[in-house]
Structure formats: C-alpha cells, structure tokens
Design a protein around this nucleic acid. Sequence first.
DNA 1: TGGGTCAAGCTGAGAA
DNA 2: TTCTCAGCTTGACCCA
Length: 230
Amino acid sequence: MDFDDLCNTGLVLGLGNSSSSSSPKNHTKKDDHVRKAAEPSLTLNLSDVKKDDSDLYRQDSAASSFSTVSVKREREVRSEDEDEDGPNGRKKLRLTKAQSALLEESFKQHSTLNPKQKQDLARELKLRPRQVEVWFQNRRARTKLKQTEVDCEFLKKCCETLTDENRRLHKELQELKLAQPLYMQLPAATLTMCPSCERIGGAAADNAAKTSFVTKPHFYNPFTNPSAAC
DNA sequence: TGGGTCAAGCTGAGAA
DNA sequence: TTCTCAGCTTGACCCA
C-alpha cells in the first residue's frame, strides 16, 4: 500500500471526546448507588428465564423497551418474583454458544432490530426481548470500538508516512539548494527579465553573477535602469 | 488477585 | 410521550 492508497481510503475517524451528553454529568455514581440500594436489580439469569419465561414474555410484549416507565414496570414485576438472588443480587447471564451464534448471525444480517425482529429473535433464543436489545446495543458498541482501534492504527501509519515524506522532502530541498545556480536561490521579486532578450536580470542577480558561474550576465532592472535595454 | 470481558444498569438526545 | 440509541459505568465471572 503506497501513500496515496493510504490517504485515499476515505476513512473517517472520530476520536475526540464524546461531546454528546451521554456522559452522565448530572448523574453521579453516588446517585446510582443510592438508587440501587433503594431499587432491586433488574438482572435476570438463565435459570430465571426458564423459570418465568412466559410471564416475562407477557411483560415485554407490553413494554418491549426500557424507557423509564417500562424499566420501573419491569423492576416492579421483577421484584415481585425475585427472591433467590436477594434484593440486590445480580447474577451474570452467560449466553450459550448457540445463543451467541444465532445473535451473531442475526447481527451480520442487520445491526439493528425492529420490534418484530426483536420479539422473534427473543422467542427463538428463549430470552427476553430486552436481553436481545441489550446484546445488540453492546455488540454495536464493540464493533464501533474495534473500528476505532483500526482507524487509530491507520492514522498512526498515515502519520508516520507523512513524517517520513516530510523529512525526505526537506532533505531534497536542501540538496537542491546546494546544487542549483545561486541566482535561482534569490527571491523572485529581485529577479526581472529583459523584455528584449528575455534574460534574467536584477540588482541582486548582478551581485550573484559576479560570484556565480553565469558567464555572460545580461541584467535588466526596470526600476534602477528603466530606459536601458540590452 | 488483578485485569479483561460482557450483560445490564443509567442518562440524555433525538425521532416519531 | 414513548421508544431507541449511544455512551458511560457497574458488577459478575473467568483466567493467567
């Protein structure tokens, strides 16, 4: 992959701080803990799913998403029949290989789900729609993170390439400065051209000519010598 | 035991 | 108002 290839991939990276308000600014961990202490955990493990699957399905059909209201509703439902993990128990659900495979397969087809797809998938997996939804959300987050890492690596390489290129060009410039005739190094404003013979002239070039290898200088400076043509 | 992974919690934003 | 999403965080679990 050459430099052009690197720079023409069209990849865009947003690495900056998330300016979105997603970071819980007004929401402290203390608040969380207070809330958690007051409210039972919502987590459900597989045994739970098996145990009260049908009940949960009914609940989720009515509230397929966890808005504030539906969260509370489900929490209430959960707290009613939650007893084995205690009020603050939070058993971690591990998806089976088959479940993960099916979810992955589904994710490959579409990274977001509409409510119908979510319900169907949840039924198929014997999970709650909410769990399917969460899995997709986390999966999208993982994908994005991975892509960010890839983009970051790409940008690093790009930066290295540009640095090398910059170094090389600087070196080349130095070499050119040493190699070319002295008058070529003069600022363009000091050089003029004789309109009749089209030779380069100018006061500075005059000085340069004395020391350079320009054998027969023919200078024309319209400012110092406007009437004198060649 | 510390670090990594991941399901699930929370919040705010935006769309319908 | 409700739903869905992104982003951040927590806590359970696993492994070197």
